[in-house]
Every structure is written in structure tokens, then in C-alpha cells.
Design a protein around this nucleic acid. Sequence first.
DNA 1: TAGATTGTTAATCGATTAACAATC
DNA 2: TAGATTGTTAATCGATTAACAATC
Lengths: 213, 213
Amino acid sequence: MAQRKKVPSTVVRRLPKYYRHLSDLLKEDILRISSKELSQRMGITASQVRQDFNFFGGFGQQGYGYNVQHLFDKISSILGVNIRKKLIIVGAGNLGRALANYKNFKNRGFDLVGIFDVNKELVGQVIDGIPISHFNNIDRFLEENSVDIGILSVPYDETPAAAQKLADCGIRALWNFSTMDIRLPHDVAIENVHLSDSLMVLSYKLNHKLSGD
Amino acid sequence: MAQRKKVPSTVVRRLPKYYRHLSDLLKEDILRISSKELSQRMGITASQVRQDFNFFGGFGQQGYGYNVQHLFDKISSILGVNIRKKLIIVGAGNLGRALANYKNFKNRGFDLVGIFDVNKELVGQVIDGIPISHFNNIDRFLEENSVDIGILSVPYDETPAAAQKLADCGIRALWNFSTMDIRLPHDVAIENVHLSDSLMVLSYKLNHKLSGD
DNA sequence: TAGATTGTTAATCGATTAACAATC
DNA sequence: TAGATTGTTAATCGATTAACAATC
């Protein structure tokens, strides 16, 4: 059941899409599905579905297909979303406050437990029940609380220092919304999100009258 | 100078990254750069840099390299970010209001000109100088105002209808933050953004102790 | 059992990297 | 000119698709 070889990142990036579609199937009370049906719903090939799952050992049964609940559980567990995770937000500007208010994360098993900023004007404000603390106090907070993921929404210039600080305090995963990419030497998982990159790609597609992906 | 063949989406998705790094170089007053230097800054190969640019005809000069300003202008123009674009937001929930407050878009040449929602409680509220209007009035608004891009931040179930409505009103590009992918039959450019997909990929990386991309 | 559909190997396609002649 | 570096072709690598034997 352990994966045979390193899973390509193309496959990893499809896993949340499987997760979403399987979640839909569960809501529709569909108990089993073939790679063909699933692939049609997702707009990919049946071959790709089977190849993807076989990186993890295969979840189906010949002649039957896949049990939706079982497949969903397996993929949830591979993604690690079967265990709730704790988040903090560093940088309570517009984007940071927006993310703090975004309810969907809770549905997916992610709980916000702290918000930090260097701006004294913001410290003390409460967002969705969580008070904003000063970034200087983050060491102590992280000593007293186990946190899985740090969300970075700080200005460009502050990005490297903030990232380094969190890594030094033992954070093992950073979700980075800053416009500067971060790359840390240690074993810290990083996901750089560039919203304006996506907007520029849309602008390109619009310019070149191209839809789809 | 026109592109030789269809530009692969892998190349298109790298263009904003070139844009960002060239923008940095301009700030540092660097006038010229070789594919080798640029590639090192970006963490890709020099070959890839030259291959990418040659999809658009090549922007350099043998023995010299690339003029940073010229290259930046070319890529801006390919991305269409040299001409300001008008945006509206449909769906003024947490995410919609957050996007409305996000100042970075303005810097990249995107101007918010309208916000719409079906919730009467929200209609009339003003965000960053833009009042929230009722979605029923969108036809008239789009007749009277030229809008380039519609940002969709509506609930799952309302996604297809909202997307269709915007397309019917002549919007040619949709930036979709809904959890449901949209695919329209017409010539509408679509960019689906799934924030929680990205968070789940981070969770995967954390689980499997993998950094980088 | 017969039919269906997976798991897996082989073939194809596309993207990245390497190499080098062209040329500034 | 000599040196540097592109533009472009060729080689390699990886991902997707096709095919089919295994098996439920």
C-alpha cells in the first residue's frame, strides 16, 4: 500500500480535484464508480485516473470499479486532510484578514488558532473570535501551542525574515501569499500562491481568446 | 514577431514569473541580463528561458543577452497587462469583499468598477469606494460600462448560473474563486482558482516531508 | 462462467535539457 | 577580430494515452 516511487507533482496536484469530485459523488449517494465514469466527470482520461491511483498501490477491484467512500477515505488520508490541522496567519493586512474570515478552510479540516502582525494599531482587534497578537510574541505562542501551518500574508520586503522566523520556531509548512517566492533550506513544506499570476494568465487568455486550461 | 505555433500552457504559466523577476531587475537598475543569469535567479535552466522566449520570436541579441526594459515591455504586452483592465466582483461574501479590498491588483493594471450580490442586506454597502449593487441590475450595468473581467466568488450551487449570466452579458473572461469549476462552451477565457486545493497540496507536502514544487 | 473493469506494461506525445552553428 | 550569448535543432526525459492480460 506504500507508494512504489516518488509521486510526480503533476499527480499530487490532481489529488485535490479527485477529492472534490469524490466528495460530490458522496453527496449524490453514489456508492461505486468506474475509472471511465470518474474520468468523464473530471474531464481527463480513464487511463490517467488508473495510473494516478496506482502510484499509491491501487484502490479498485477488477470488474467492479472503485468504492466511492473507500476511495475518498484513501485520498483524504494521502492528502492528510483526515486529521484536523492548526493554522496561524502572519500579516493581518487586507489579504490576511480576508483569509481569517474565509470559512471554507474549517470545512476542510483546518482551524485558525492565531493571527499576528507588527502593526500596533491592529493588535488587539478580534477577527472571527481570534485576537490579533503582536508578531514579537510569536515565539512564546508557538512554544505553548502546536501549530501545523503558517499562512504568510506580509509585504514583499518582510517575506524572507518572517518565513525564517516561523521556520526557526518550528513551523513545518508555509502557505505563502506574499508576492515574493520563498525557498527555505530546511525541511519546510512551502506552497507559494500568486493570485496576480493567475490574473495575468487570465489576461493572456483573454488577449489570445483561449478558454480552458 | 507573431508567435510561430500555439504556446503551450506550461510556457504561459511561466510568463508572470518572468514578469515579476524582470520587474525586480528594473527596480535594481539592471539594464541587461543573459539567459544564464536570469535562469539562475528564477531557478530554471537557461535553455528553458531561451526556448520560452522563442515561442514569441526571440527578444535577445547574440553576444549581448536581453535588454531588461525591452524584455519586460514585450512580456507585459503578451500578458496584456500594458493596457488597464476593468473588473467586477460577483458575490460579496467574505472572499468577494476581501478581493475588493486587495490593493495589489491596481498596481498590476486592474481596476475594480463594480460589486454585485443577491443579498439585499449587502446592497448599498460601500467597499473601497465601490457600492455593492444588486445582481439583478447587472445587465444594465454591463450595457453602460465596458468590463473586461468578471470575478466570481459565489456559493457552489450558484456558480453555473452566475457564470452563464455574465457570459450572456458579454463578459469574455472569468476569474473563478468558486469551489465549482466552470466550463463554458463559448469563447470565454476562464481561470479557476481553488485556494483549498493549494492548501491540501501543502498538507500533502507536510505529510510527506517534501518542500519545493 | 461470462462480462466488466482494473492494474500494469508498452507506445506515444510533449516538455525540458543539451549542443552548437549563427551572429552580434 | 575574438568572445559572448543567442536562436534553433537534436537528444533526453517525463507524463499521458493506449492496449491488454489478470482477475473480480
